[in-house]
């Protein structure tokens, strides 16, 4: 129906924007495989030397482990707090929804510098500064919205008759939710948790204030790196995290996909 020339122009424009969006990603990934020790793009030839460099460096490995600890704790807490809240928002709470929505949104988009200085001043009397849980507790505030948004969206697309069927066959409401609904919306929960992890791994300002300069998670190490060292090891470090996170997501998703039909068959 549409004139092919106009639709071609729109598609071309969208394609150009996607190139703009993805080109920096390509640059970082390619440079991480560079064989030379200066930043030239495209790299003259490819090698794994920068991956060897960072994975044999004590400081980088420590940064990885610290980021992993903080991120995992953040993802876990965000999921435990966010999933019940998402159920409440999409099923049980009618009045006051706007207030809760606004709070969750504020937790997500309030400027990180505000969260950083306020949590720093607040942690001083509690002795939570310079602790891994202290940082994860603060990161959980920004992790919760990712879980809530994804699970609310997941529940919107979920056919509640499946749960009702379980109830008719004698399951208690709680059992119907745990046995039927949760496995079926698991992909939404997992995506939310992974995004909560990623925002924790990438967060810089709160990490700098809460952990000071003694312990450095990956984001702080990268931040120091981009301002001094000009070699491709940073690109290799950040690409490794990305690959790990994507592999984690894909593994869990595939495992979930294989497990789901049998669980439904058994319990439903």
């Amino acid at each position: 129906m549409r004139a092919p020339r106009a639709s071609l122009a729109v598609n071309g424009l969208a394609g150009a924007v996607l190139v703009f969006l993805l080109f920096p990603v390509l640059v970082v990934v390619l440079i991480s495989f560079s064989s030379v020790d200066f930043l030239s793009f495209p790299p003259p030839s490819l090698s794994l030397r920068w991956y060897r460099t960072i994975f044999s460096n004590f400081e980088w490995i420590n940064a990885f482990l610290l980021t992993l600890q903080v991120g995992a704790l953040t993802a876990l807490l965000s999921t435990l707090l966010g999933v019940p809240a998402a159920f409440a928002l999409s099923r049980h709470v009618k009045r006051g929804q706007n207030v809760v929505n606004a709070l969750v949104l504020a937790a997500l988009v309030t400027p990180p510098i505000i969260k950083a200085i306020s949590i720093y001043l607040y942690y001083v009397p509690f002795g939570l500064l310079n602790t891994v849980p202290g940082l994860a507790f603060a990161h959980t505030v920004s992790g919760i919205p990712f879980v809530v948004i994804n699970v609310v969206a997941g529940l919107r697309g979920y056919d509640r008759d499946l749960e009702r069927a379980a109830s008719i066959h004698g399951a208690s409401p709680l059992r119907a939710v745990l046995g039927i609904t949760l496995p079926l919306i698991a992909p939404s929960i997992i995506v939310g948790a992974v995004f909560a992890f990623m925002q924790s791994a990438q967060e810089l300002l709160i990490a700098m204030f809460v952990l000071g300069t003694l312990e450095k998670p990956l984001a702080v190490k990268l931040w120091e790196g981009v301002r001094v060292a000009i070699d491709p090891s940073l690109a290799a470090a950040t690409t490794s995290v990305t690959v790990l996170a994507i592999l984690g997501l894909v593994t869990v998703m595939l495992a979930g996909r294989r497990a789901r039909p049998t669980r439904v068959a058994v319990q439903g």
Partner: peptide
């Protein structure tokens, strides 16, 4: 009641680690 019960943990967390620190600031 059920809705509040499900919301309470998240709201308390946001209060303790976001609202109170902001108020303190």
């Amino acid at each position: 009641a059920l809705g509040l019960l499900l919301l309470a943990p998240m709201l308390s967390w946001i209060a303790v680690f976001f609202i109170f620190p902001t108020a303190w600031m």
